[in-house]
């Protein structure tokens, strides 16, 4: 097996506090996992705020350098990327999706500016027709077209549409890996599943691996192949989604699993009544 992404004993510490009470925060501790280059998958990192999941994502994207350990993408150490050329080559293979689609696009810039810039920089296209064609092709993958997006501003579209445009933009350079940090937490419920379904399609039709970072166990169960659960920087449980989320064994994952309320008034209200009696 050739590895697409390989994390080996990755640690990240932050210095926190002022002059007098300085201490070290271990944001990420001993994280290791490997994604297979031949077998695209949806790999989910589940955790609450402060679990280190976002720091892990930032390290994979090369925005943070680990304190110790290595992250290799297609055999190359991500922390060793120095020149702009290397960085561009890396970004053409690894692309992010951000949490809040309304924040991810500058409200004063037209959306197509992001798409065209990506096409020009990573595909080296100069000709306007070619740029349009590449952009339109990527938008078709997410069920949109350039005609719908050209000249529009972010406030003219819904969160779901914006998030799909963000995915389309990430697809333009033909990436191998997409890192999506809480991509649906700010998207309305009626549109959320369209994004999540889209990730499945990308995996199956384009062969893109996706690292899906979330606190929401229900969507994680719905789309993931493999899952790791992080708690205070540690990976407490890892494995296939059905096993880890359906039948968790670690104490923390069990607590997390039972904290999820089912969308069913009979069961959910019974859980709350049970809690009430316990107090």
């Amino acid at each position: 097996m050739t590895a697409l992404l390989e994390l080996q004993d990755v640690n990240k510490d932050y210095r926190v506090g002022g002059f007098l009470d300085r201490s070290t925060l271990h944001a990420v501790k001993h994280v290791s996992f490997t994604l297979d280059a031949e077998k695209p998958e949806i790999f989910t990192v589940v955790g609450e705020s402060g679990s280190g999941k976002t720091t892990t994502a930032r390290m994979i994207l090369g925005n943070e350098v680990p304190t110790s350990g290595t992250l290799r993408f297609m055999g190359k150490d991500i922390a060793q990327i120095r020149t702009r050329q290397e960085r561009l080559e890396f970004m053409a293979r690894v692309q992010p999706i951000f949490q809040n689609p309304f924040e991810a696009f500058n409200p004063l810039t037209t959306l197509d500016y992001y798409l065209f810039s990506t096409a020009k920089r990573f595909l080296g296209l100069k000709d306007k027709v070619a740029v349009d064609a590449a952009t339109d092709k990527a938008l078709q993958h997410v069920g949109l077209s350039l005609a719908e997006v050209r000249g529009r501003y972010s406030h003219e579209l819904s969160g779901g549409q914006l998030q799909r445009i963000a995915v389309a933009r990430a697809l333009i350079p033909g990436p191998k890996l997409i890192v999506a940090d809480e991509p649906v937490s700010m998207v309305d419920a009626s549109l959320r599943m369209s994004i999540v379904n889209l990730f499945r399609e990308l995996r199956d039709t384009l062969g893109v691996s996706i690292i899906y970072i979330t606190h929401d166990l229900s969507t994680a169960y719905y789309i993931s192949d493999r899952v790791i659960i992080m708690h205070k920087g540690d990976v407490v449980e890892a494995g296939r989604a059905e096993e880890v989320l359906g039948n968790p064994s670690h104490e923390y994952s069990r607590a997390l699993r039972s904290a999820v309320l089912p969308p069913d008034p009979v069961v959910a209200s019974a859980i709350i009544r049970e809690k009430l009696r316990a107090v």
Binding site: F98, Q99, E103, T118, F122, R169
Partner: peptide, 12 residues
């Protein structure tokens, strides 16, 4: 802001 990070990954 997130749009700045997005711009970087859009190759700007």
């Amino acid at each position: 802001r997130e749009f700045t990070r997005h711009a970087v990954f859009a190759g700007m």
